[in-house]
Design a protein around this nucleic acid. Structure first.
Lengths: 302, 302
DNA sequence: CAATTCGATGAGTTGAAGTCATGGCAGATG
DNA sequence: CATCTGCCATGACTTCAACTCATCGAATTG
């Protein structure tokens, strides 16, 4: 009595079909069993639950209100079971259904989310995605707080495997109305007396660019430091111009009109890669992320 | 293969116990079955899922990482099944596991939530609780947007059953430092030249009080209309004094110090009741709410 | 009223999920 | 070392819940 579930789960499935079909005979046909099987199954379920689910009226089954509510509950449960099935599928395919990712901000606004999305397609994965600086990513993976990290290269760590994913060259981002927008490319010397917007993340775009400016003896009018997620908006708003990696630009450009992208000279490389602990070397999730990541990155260089 | 759940649910339960017990023999003892039964169950499950859950090492079972993850998933699912069981219990006890309640603000900050809480004790109910004016409550129940309503009396409706729950007498709420706080009771005439805080809900405390003032020819210094949920705070803050029903006072007094309650004369009654459509007359939820509601209300009159 | 459709039920069948009995292995014990 | 104990796997047998089959009675349809 009220001992739901274990035995009766099959009966719940029969009941679900019955409720949807409206008649035992039809349900039986749907389920590939006999009408008497359905009839018995229902009778047992009512007995087990101590609930009257159907009235027998004129040799027809008429659902009670309770039946409707039970049906809704069963739908919920079936959904949960479906999730379990997806988990098992992920477990079979990847050997795990949990993944903790750490990524630099520059990749966290488009690339990594997209990557995670394709991992989750038809699978149930429990993913945690943290955003932090490149060094912190490395530390997180080393200390097993994350399983896989996305960082800027170069990076070395005796405890970690480092794989290059993509080599890019910095581009210049500026308002369409800006005088420099008329040029096909922007040289570092053209930045003289400009107001720059640069990332406040250490070791991303900021330092190399400032070094380059120093090397060429270029003096800028001023600079605004901002979170990398807001830089495109700042440029679009006319706060200044910026030089950054094309991945982030691509991920954020969609939402801001009036901003143009120009090649930047001299070439200033940004290399992205992923890191993981050695024991993940042969993991299938890693292989999936690597391969799918490369595919996604291919869309970035038109 | 990967056809989880239906047949294998029992096997999942066995696996769960096995994982917790650490050995098949122990699990068998816990489950009241034989070791060989557990062994077979595990073997079948691994076969069904296509997953290796345990290594056999030196005649010992050693859980694989996959086993741990599957265990977590199973815990989730068992939780869901437990919820289904509670739903069925509610369905058996009350004939429904869904309840839409509409209540006036004066009861919505303490009494009705407490009532709902005791309904939910050990049961899984899907409750929706809406707050609205007494007339809107009535309309909501009439139109089947709510099943049970809590209103101020009097109320009549040919379509609804109306039951009185409680008869109360308005009390006066004022800051402890207020001159009138020195009196044992506050008479309507004492309100002359006071600043009043009154509910902006129509037909709750506001109108009867204002009428009373008019009858006695009492002129007040001014009034602040506010949501009933904020009146106690306003009084505590020194914004004025108020006359309201003791239920709401009781529900909100806990969070504000420096406020005192005094009887109010002449007696001004507030009666609360519940309404429902006729078809709910014999419902067991209704009986529960009525009985439990009376019990709760007993705590209000010390 | 013949034909069809529906659900219930007694009787019989089946197979998944158990038990029993046994055997092999590893580690502890005296 | 012999023995004992606790572990797991497996072939052979058992059991019983969950079916099917066959049949009935009752209602609907044209």
């Amino acid at each position: 009595m009220a001992d739901v579930s274990l035995h009766s789960l099959k009966a719940l499935a029969v009941f679900k079909t019955l409720f949807e079909a409206g008649s035992a005979s039809q349900a039986a046909r749907t389920l590939g069993m006999t009408q008497s099987g359905v009839s018995r199954s229902l009778a047992r379920l009512e007995e087990d639950l101590g609930l009257s689910l159907y009235h027998r009226e004129k040799n027809r089954l008429v659902a009670t209100p309770e039946a409707g509510e039970l049906y809704d509950e069963i739908l919920r449960l079936m959904g949960n079971i479906e999730e379990l099935r997806h988990s098992v599928l992920a477990l079979k395919e990847f050997g795990t259904s949990r993944l903790r990712i750490a990524a630099i901000p520059g990749l966290s606004f488009g690339f990594v989310p997209r990557l995670v999305a394709s991992l989750l397609e038809n699978r149930r994965f429990s993913v945690s995605l943290d955003m932090m600086s490149s060094h912190e990513v490395q530390a997180a993976v080393e200390s097993s707080h994350a399983d896989i990290g996305f960082i800027t290269l170069p990076a070395t760590s005796p405890q970690l495997n480092v794989e290059a994913l993509l080599t890019t060259q910095a581009v210049c981002l500026l308002p369409a109305s800006h005088p420099l927008a008329a040029q096909d490319a922007v040289d570092v010397t053209a930045l003289a007396d400009q107001h720059l917007v640069i990332s406040n993340q250490p070791s991303l775009a900021s330092n190399p660019l400032l070094e380059l400016l120093a090397q060429h003896g270029v003096r800028i009018a001023g600079k605004t430091e901002a979170n990398i997620g807001t830089i495109t908006a700042l440029v679009a708003g006319g706060a200044g111009i910026t030089v950054m990696n094309p991945i982030t630009v691509h991920d954020q450009l969609g939402c801001h009109a009036g901003v143009v992208v120009r090649p930047f000279t001299p070439v200033m490389g940004f290399d992205f890669g992923l890191v993981y602990r050695h024991e993940w070397r042969d993991s299938r999730v890693l292989a999936f992320l690597r391969d799918r990541g490369r595919e996604l990155l291919a869309d970035y260089s038109p």
